[in-house]
Computed example of a mutant assay.
Amino acid sequence: MSSSNNNKRRKVMKKMLLATALILFFVPGFGQDLFINEFLASNDACCADENGEFDDFIEIYNGGTEAVDIGGMYITDDLAAPTEYQIPDTAPDSTTIESGGFLLLWADKESEQGILHVEIKLGGGGEQIGLFASDGVTPIDTLTFGEQTTDVSKGRNPDGGETWEFFTSPTPGATNGGASVSDPVNLPEAVALEQNYPNPFNPTTTIRFSLEAHGDVSLQIYDVSGRLVETLVSSRMEAGEYNVEWNAVSHPSGIYFFSLTSGGEQITKKMLFLK
């Protein structure tokens, strides 16, 4: 190949690289500085919405330097269904979060009450929360939480930080730091995996486990030959207690093993499925 052809190819490659760099520079981000900052999954008498109703809430914090409009983004309580509910993009005055600001979403399944009322509801027994970009694919922030206490919220401290705490005096729409935050509720002191219940079972059983700190967690089911049958959990989870149900209806009767891996620890127990 001639040197002139090589030079032409180099010039074309340079132009392509430059174009790619310009696209990456100018295309706006998906809100990478937004955080699920606090939530309350069991609200009996803590915090009322504008209608005087005690609904679950999710607080979003903007830790970036620019205002972000979350209109058009998706909120879900099931990470396997990221497009469960799209936040309306028709009222940017209500859905824009200023730099360092907070926005409260009421998880009450009553969107007719206002643009910040979303069609999901949180479960006090443990669930998931996910904020996804307007493409319905890109995660902005996600979390999986365990069993909650009524009127006690859980939030990041400091705002947007990695540490999660329980607050007996929730702070919806305000900072989680400072005097307004009460003492955290006690957390598990170690990673633990309890025996499934019922056992033997047919066809569903519940597996309960505890985490002492946030981190990557997996909960997997194996058959007697050591073959992986199903992965029940594979995500980053916060400290707390969790219940996971396994439905074995599509599997044959027999002995199975369930294995929890977290923080470099692995715990395995045996269970019996009888049809």
Rank of each mutant, 00 (worst) to 15 (best):
E238H: 02
S210P: 01
T150R: 11
T142R: 11
S134Y: 03
L228A: 06
Q113M: 07
S42L: 07
D223I: 04
S180R: 14
F102S: 02
F35C: 03
M73I: 03
E110M: 09
I129G: 01
E230F: 12
Y85F: 15
S111H: 03
S253C: 09
I36V: 05
V27R: 00
D159P: 14
T83E: 08
E230Y: 14
L143C: 06
S94F: 12
F25L: 14
V229Y: 12
W246T: 12
R236F: 12
L187H: 01
E165A: 14
H251R: 13
V118M: 03
M1E: 09
V27P: 00
Y242K: 13
L79E: 06
L103W: 04
V229C: 06
S262H: 15
N186I: 10
F273S: 04
V12F: 00
Q220F: 00
Y256P: 08
M271V: 14
T149P: 01
T204L: 11
D78N: 15
L187G: 00
T83K: 15
L193C: 04
D159T: 14
G123A: 10
N186Q: 08
A174N: 15
I58Q: 01
G114K: 12
T163I: 15
S99N: 03
F25Q: 06
L105I: 04
N6C: 05
N37T: 06
Q113G: 00
P198N: 15
E50I: 05
V27S: 02
V68D: 01
L232D: 08
N186D: 11
V217Y: 01
L187F: 06
M73K: 14
L187A: 00
E194D: 11
P158T: 05
T168L: 08
D89A: 11
K8G: 01
E59Y: 02
S2H: 00
I23K: 04
F201Y: 08
D56E: 12
G136C: 00
D151T: 07
D89L: 10
V185L: 11
G29N: 12
R236V: 10
C46I: 00
P188M: 11
E53F: 08
D135P: 05
F258C: 14
T175I: 09
I75P: 02
